[in-house]
Design a protein around this nucleic acid. Structure first.
Lengths: 192, 192
DNA sequence: ATATAATATATCAGAGTGATATATTTATTT
DNA sequence: AAATAAATATATCACTCTGATATATTATAT
């Protein structure tokens, strides 16, 4: 196989936590891990079928759940998932549309670039506020702190916080640099 | 169209800088913008064909270049590119394999997680060193500083620097948290 | 009762990845 | 000068993943 199917492992992971339907899996992703992982129906359903054929998941043994198309992970599935967990994460080929656009910033009016960076900054401010709130509720929850999974749930959240903070600083710095180094590109170099 | 073809715009951008063959475009991406953008042949060649049909690019007017399958951007192509540049960058659905793995860290032995974070830290240290070197050569190059594109080339580089720094700090912090909150999950909770 | 929100699944075209194969030209070594 | 290696160049393939759309059923609120 050319490229690894990551959706497969994401689904196995979610099913380690609790039996789910395809719909439940999508909901879980959107609600709980959406700031670092996304899934969509177009992939979830075919992969669920494939996982069943591979005997990594099976219809829930609970009668009511089975009727609702709920799946549970098998022992084989758990083994497969844990094996994947221990492999070093693959380096992802980057594709930042923002950076690509920005690197051609001298092709458009400076106002456009500054507005763009303003929007990015605002989005990061909103994200940061949300993360900080989540962090607060985590750190004041003694039950959560005793869960052995606690530091593993905290880690992506902390990454979100630190990343948002740095993005905000970077936006400010970049606007300053643009104003300093390219104050009058409108007349000389811009296409528009 | 459901999803925007970004390769199209990346190619137009590169051809704004200089006429290129598909091979040249790939080389440029790998050499110059690889820390925030990647392209591959499997997409470049069909998109080049498509761009030609849309009259956004054409075979180079230079005889030698034309023989070498070099393309140049048309005025229409420039217009198309600049129009795209001014659109707000689309929000990308995140997929961090590292974060996904980490959030299930309590399913494997703590040593594995710590080793994984060590590798991530090392990679970020290497990247940071490379970025810093590049930054140094930029900032001491007076000709480069006078180029109106200067702040736009600096921006992605600065983002790489700030992001690497924060990732290094995050790795250290996360290892500490794991040791503090889950010092003995080997016996109690790990599958392996 | 009725509207509407939540649950549930299927399907599709198209974007993007990375591996592989292959042929030609140019540079380097012997 | 011949042999070899490296760079240039393109095509193709199976597969992953995205996001839109369509559609039907079951809870829940008014």
């Amino acid at each position: 196989m050319a490229i690894k199917n990551k959706t497969k492992y994401a689904i196995l992971g979610v099913l380690c936590l609790k039996p789910c339907s395809g719909y439940d899996i999508k909901k879980f992703c959107d609600k709980t891990i959406s700031h670092y992982w996304s899934e969509n129906f177009g992939h979830i359903y075919p992969v669920l079928k494939q996982l069943q054929e591979e005997h990594f998941i099976q219809p829930s043994e609970d009668k009511a759940s089975a009727k609702r198309n709920v799946f549970q992970i098998t022992d084989e599935g758990k083994r497969e998932f844990v094996e994947w967990l221990m492999l070093p994460p693959e380096i992802q080929s980057p594709r930042s549309e923002l950076m690509l656009k920005l690197s051609f910033g001298n092709y458009i009016a400076i106002e456009h670039v500054i507005a763009m960076l303003g929007e990015v900054k605002d989005r990061n401010i909103r994200n940061l506020a949300y993360y900080r709130e989540l962090e607060g509720s985590y750190l004041t929850n003694d039950a959560a702190k005793k869960d052995p999974a606690f530091p593993y749930w905290l880690a992506p959240l902390r990454h979100g916080i630190l990343t948002s903070e740095v993005n905000i600083r970077w936006c400010e710095e970049t606007v300053q640099n643009i104003k300093q180094y390219a104050p009058s590109n409108l007349e000389e170099d811009a296409y528009v």
